[in-house]
């Protein structure tokens, strides 16, 4: 009897008796994919509304003249005016220097943390992360207090006889760098620490067993294996620096003008949304260009995707 039923069902849905439920299973798979897509649609919608639309709009108004007609005047001005070139050069100089100093300080720090026992590492990590939990503005003004002419650092140093005249530590490049390095350091330390933690100790034992001195083992095994984390961290720091505003504005004392500051000026002082948008577009394009170039150069997809394995 049941055999007869099966035959009828198969006949009615027009299915091949050798491939039972083929159509139905295919349909189930399609519906499942559809439901999964449905689950991420709120996030996609959010990205569309707060990311894609504003950037497109930004892009659009950067090509509008003050009269509302299509024009390249905002871009033309960037090419003609020397000050814009200088601003972009300053932005890149500050970003590269900050990244470089972060690498110099952050790599040994991450190495130190990765070698500590778990509990001690957790405590030290809190001190690294502490800056994350206080307001950016508070930290920046704190540096102002510490570094200014009659600030704590200068006073103490003179009392101790380290230098005689108060050093100009703030309202210039060094002040900007000190503040930015302080704020950026965790962004470098975290990925580097992560990549160091997963380096199996046996690699170093093997190197040592094969005749490598501790320095050789570090140089030829540990360092290359921690490189993915270092590249990732340096890239994050560099890209964040490119768009940085508060710290250079406060600690640079008007001498360090970054792209983000000129954008603010364009809007707040000159009410020129077109010029501000054009700057934003160029900064975005440069950042994307750098990301793309470094991903080609450093095989970033493998670095970020594979975590070094």
């Amino acid at each position: 009897m049941s055999t007869a039923d099966t035959v009828i069902v198969n006949a009615s849905s027009g299915e091949d008796a050798d491939r039972p439920h083929a159509e139905g299973l295919k349909q189930d798979a399609f519906l499942e994919r559809l439901r999964l897509f449905g689950l991420c649609s709120p996030a996609l919608l959010l990205v569309l509304v707060i990311m894609v639309l504003p950037v497109t709009w930004l892009f659009y108004i950067s090509f509008l003249s003050d009269e509302g007609t299509f024009s390249l005047e905002h871009y033309q001005r960037m090419i003609d005016s020397k000050s814009y070139t200088r601003i972009f050069l300053t932005t890149f100089k500050v970003s590269i220097l900050t990244t470089f100093i972060c690498v110099i300080i952050g790599y040994p720090l991450a190495y130190f943390l990765s070698q500590l026992p778990r509990r001690a590492a957790a405590i030290c990590m809190i001190t690294v992360l502490l800056p994350f939990w206080t307001s950016l503005l508070v930290r920046t003004y704190a540096w102002l207090v510490l570094l200014q002419r009659k600030g704590i650092l200068n006073t103490w140093a003179i009392d101790l006889g380290l230098w005689d005249e108060p050093l100009k530590l703030v309202h210039n490049l060094s002040g900007t760098l000190i503040g930015m390095v302080h704020i950026m350091l965790p962004f470098l330390v975290l990925p580097v620490y992560g990549s160091m933690k997963v380096i199996d100790n046996d690699y170093l034992k093997a190197a040592s067993n094969l005749g490598a001195t501790p320095a050789q083992a570090f140089r030829q095994v540990f360092l290359p294996l921690s490189m993915p984390g270092l590249f990732a961290g340096a890239l994050i720091v560099f890209v964040l620096c490119l768009g940085f505003f508060v710290t250079p504005a406060v600690l640079g004392g008007g001498k360090i003008i970054m792209v983000s500051m000129r954008i603010t000026d364009n809007i707040e002082l000159f009410f020129n949304w077109g010029a501000a948008s054009a700057l934003g577009v160029v900064l975005l394009a440069l950042t994307m260009g750098i990301l793309y170039a470094s991903s080609r150069l450093l095989k970033l997809d493998r670095i970020l995707g594979g975590g070094g394995h």
Partner: peptide, 20 residues
């Protein structure tokens, strides 16, 4: 004697081949 001066070959349990 430190390990790198012992001049013995060793095969590790997880091989410890350098992935890079």
């Amino acid at each position: 004697t430190p390990p790198h001066k012992r001049d013995v070959g060793m095969v590790f349990q997880n091989y410890a081949l350098f992935p890079h």
